[in-house]
């Protein structure tokens, strides 16, 4: 079995009285594609925020390749090799697509600059299906293309762990197919990925394992098909979600 890439143990985040992530533990092995699912408001994005450093955990430990990262600044965690996309797509509106992607390569642990960074940016744009569109202003792109740019930016840092927050949300059926194939390809290349997703078909076809959260608590974990048929998981979804 591969070594553990990311280890989350008893991570907790409280917003005042609301415990958004309640002592959640799980681990991701190198090269694994882990699905993180759960009804709306169950704490998935907050969990990713704790890993990426956007938020500091109230308590608990998170380790990347064995080294503790919980509570570090987001930029430090990024430099150690965690990259992410955002639930509501975040591109750099004043820049071209290629510059957006370059941003991921320049400051992370890769630290490319100049021609090298530009070259990588164009290469990655091609990977995500935007060949030859590098010089377009990103603000003039469609939603799915912006999502592609954001993914390319995350990949530009050559992350140890890639976090995708509902990267497939908002895509139409044909775009969805392309999106799933792209993630599958990344995973096939050995990337370690945690994907938060509501699209169950994607989880079924892509993930090795999944973790299910509900109201901040991890309620199930394991192989995808047995987890999704777990009565407690079914109840959590039927109780307050439509997925």
């Amino acid at each position: 079995m591969n070594a553990i890439a990311l280890n989350v143990s008893s991570a907790r985040k409280a917003f005042g009285g609301l415990v958004a992530v309640n002592d959640v533990s799980f681990e991701v092995r190198q090269g694994e594609l882990l699905g993180l699912i759960g009804p709306n408001g169950s704490g998935k994005t907050t969990m990713l925020n704790l890993i990426s450093g956007a938020l500091k955990p109230t308590s608990g430990e998170i380790a990347l390749d064995g080294a503790p990262i919980a509570g570090l600044s987001a930029y430090k965690i990024a430099r150690k090799g965690v990259a992410r996309t955002f639930q509501l797509v975040r591109v750099l509106p004043s820049m071209t697509a290629a510059q957006n992607v370059m941003a991921g390569a320049v400051f992370g642990h890769r630290r490319l600059w100049g021609e090298d960074a530009m070259h990588l940016a164009h290469e990655l744009l091609e990977r995500v299906g935007l060949a030859g569109r590098g010089s377009l202003p990103v603000g003039a792109m469609t939603y799915i293309d912006q999502k592609r740019v954001e993914l390319a930016r995350a990949l530009a840092s050559d992350p140890r762990v890639l976090l995708l927050d509902e990267w497939l949300a908002g895509l139409n059926p044909s775009e969805l197919k392309i999106g799933i194939a792209l993630i599958e390809q990344l995973s096939g290349e050995g990337r370690t990925i945690i994907m938060v997703e509501h699209v169950m078909d994607a989880i079924r076809s892509l993930c090795d394992r999944c973790v299910v959260m509900s109201s901040g608590i991890k309620i199930a974990e394991g192989g995808v098909s047995e987890t999704l048929s777990d009565p407690e998981v079914v109840r959590a979804y039927l109780g307050d979600d439509d997925a």
């Binding site: 450093g53 987001a74 930029y75 990259a83 975040r90 930016r153």
Partner: peptide, 11 residues
Amino acid sequence: DDETVARHVGI
């Protein structure tokens, strides 16, 4: 452009 993105790309 976006300070959150800036931090998350390692700045």
